[in-house]
Simulated assay, not measured.
Amino acid sequence: MQQQQLSELMQAAATDAVRYANEEHHITLDHSLDSLALVDSILSELHQRELAQQHSAEMIFTLCNMLGAYIGEVFIAASGGQWQQNKVDSTAPFIYVQYHDKEFPFGSVCYYKIMQDNAISLKNYVKQAMANAMQ
């Protein structure tokens, strides 16, 4: 996949995340850094739902990619960077934001919050990622 295609794909996924947040959670995401607290609340709700009833791997994968794309687009708008795809393991490729020599796998962090540790904050993760990106 070419860089332009990957960027367009992630922008479309971020748009899907905004639609999903509005339709399913009645939350308006406005592409601001402050809206990341709202993404945290969506992920927390998804974590609670997952504890109550396990969702399909495909559904979790899709939600993490959409919300990770949204977070990545907010990061790129605020700090810069570009989408990259890691294909080292062809059975488990992943997409991340690269800024200089740093990699930020926002979708993976979404997955971890839903499936493992609801206490982590994506808003704080992005804040730290922005600080790290500037070093």
Rank of each mutant, 00 (worst) to 15 (best):
A37H: 09
L36N: 01
C64G: 04
I71E: 02
D30C: 08
Q11R: 14
R19S: 10
S79I: 12
I95V: 15
P105V: 06
S44D: 10
A69Y: 03
K123A: 15
Q48E: 13
S32A: 07
D34H: 10
K113A: 11
Q4F: 12
Q11G: 04
A12M: 12
F104Y: 15
E24D: 11
D40P: 07
Y70R: 01
A131Q: 12
E50Y: 14
A133H: 02
I27H: 02
E50W: 11
E50I: 05
Q2D: 14
Q128H: 11
N132H: 08
N124Q: 13
Q85L: 03
Q85K: 08
V39R: 01
F104E: 02
C64E: 04
M59C: 06
A14S: 08
H47T: 03
A57E: 13
D16W: 02
Q53P: 00
K113Y: 04
V126F: 01
L29M: 08
M59A: 11
K102Y: 12
I42P: 06
G81E: 02
S35R: 06
L43A: 06
Q48H: 11
K102T: 07
I71A: 08
E50D: 07
A17W: 03
N124C: 06
A21H: 03
M115K: 15
S35W: 05
Q4C: 07
H47N: 12
D16V: 09
Q116K: 12
A14F: 01
I95H: 03
A21S: 14
L63I: 14
L6M: 04
V74G: 06
V88H: 05
N132V: 15
Y125S: 09
A13C: 11
L29H: 07
K102N: 11
A17C: 05
D117V: 06
M66E: 12
M115P: 03
Q85D: 00
A21D: 05
Y20G: 00
H47L: 02
A78V: 09
H100A: 13
E50H: 15
A133S: 14
Q84L: 08
Q4V: 15
Y111C: 13
Q116L: 09
P105H: 05
F94Q: 03
D117K: 06
V74Y: 05
Y112M: 09
L36H: 01
H47S: 05
M10I: 03
Q85C: 05
M134T: 11
T91C: 04
K127D: 09
G72L: 03
G107E: 00
I95A: 03
D40E: 07
A69G: 10
V74N: 04
Q82G: 09
D34L: 12
L51A: 05
L122I: 15
L63N: 04
D34V: 08
D30A: 13
Q3E: 15
H100R: 14
S44L: 13
W83D: 00
D89I: 14
T15N: 11
K87S: 12
